[in-house]
Simulated assay, not measured.
Amino acid sequence: MRYCEHMTDIPSVWARPKKGREQPALSREQIVSEAIKLLDTEGLDALSMRNLGKRLDAGATSIYRHVANKDELIELAIDEVYGEIEVPSASATEWRAGVAASAQSMRAMINRHPWVGSVLGQVGLSYLGPNVMHMSDRMLALFEKGGFDLVAANRAMRLVLSYVIGAGVGEAAWLTSLARSGLSEAEWAERVFPIAKATAAPYPRLLAAFETADAEDMFTYGLDALLDGLVAKR
């Protein structure tokens, strides 16, 4: 009993017991779905119980029946979007191809939801969400199929996820800036690239690097290098 009481003091939706009765007019699923739409369209700064209530045509009190605060709402939103990540079954794919496919799927999720990278690790216990745990378990199985023991598989998985999140945050920031500018990617390049070339003119190596940069190729190159290193370490 003392343990359960202590658990309720942990600031996480996953550590708080569910209430026995749900509010029939507004479900947790509706709240989380609308919160994600708000985050996707207006960003993290726009997320508040008041703004969310307006979008749901409900008062903040109705939302507080399901979540204790904004951090819990973000935890739930994180877990929901993690459910979009596709991790191949270890029994149906070669391990390295499966890990690469998982990384690409996670990268695509972050690009769809640019706010994710800025909140991971900052609120609650996101790693206890059911979708996050499901993804992690399937990725561990892929690494175990590749000959990693459980400790090494866990380390390898965390390294891959850290790489994808790090790369994804940079891409998401770029996509957010592009959306705010109101320009297409081609229009942005047409305006900015000449400025970048002129600025880098005194640095020939850097100038050449600018002219050959490709985000897709860079991501794949980095992921392959990381997996090569993990295989050698194994």
Rank of each mutant, 00 (worst) to 15 (best):
Y3H: 09
M7R: 14
D9A: 13
S12F: 06
A15Y: 12
R16Y: 06
R16I: 09
P17V: 13
K18L: 13
G20V: 10
R21P: 04
Q23S: 09
A25M: 11
A25K: 13
L26K: 07
S27C: 15
E29Y: 03
E29C: 02
E29D: 15
A35Y: 00
A35F: 05
D40K: 14
T41L: 15
L44K: 03
S48Y: 01
M49P: 02
M49C: 06
M49I: 11
R50A: 15
R50G: 11
N51L: 10
L52S: 10
G53C: 01
G53P: 05
G53Q: 02
K54T: 10
D57L: 09
A58C: 05
A58N: 04
G59K: 10
T61V: 10
S62N: 08
R65A: 12
H66K: 11
V67K: 10
D71T: 09
E72T: 03
I74F: 09
I74D: 09
L76Q: 00
D79M: 06
V81Q: 01
E84G: 02
P88Q: 10
P88L: 02
P88R: 05
T93I: 12
E94I: 04
R96M: 02
A97M: 04
A100M: 15
S102F: 01
S105C: 11
A108K: 12
I110V: 13
H113E: 05
P114E: 10
P114D: 12
V116F: 03
V116R: 03
G117R: 05
S118R: 12
V119F: 00
Q122M: 12
V123W: 07
Y127W: 12
P130N: 04
N131T: 14
V132G: 04
D137P: 01
E144P: 00
G146S: 05
G146K: 06
G147Y: 04
F148Q: 03
D149E: 00
A152I: 01
A153I: 04
A156I: 07
V160C: 06
V164G: 06
G166Q: 07
V169K: 13
G170A: 01
T176L: 12
S177C: 09
S177I: 07
S177N: 12
L178W: 07
S181K: 02
S181C: 02
G182A: 10
S184E: 07
S184M: 08
E187F: 01
A189I: 01
A189M: 07
A189F: 02
V192H: 11
I195L: 14
A201V: 00
P202N: 08
P202M: 05
L207Y: 03
L207Q: 01
A209L: 12
F210R: 01
E211I: 05
D214E: 08
A215N: 06
M218T: 11
M218R: 09
T220A: 14
Y221F: 14
G222P: 00
D224V: 11
A225W: 00
A225R: 13
R234N: 12
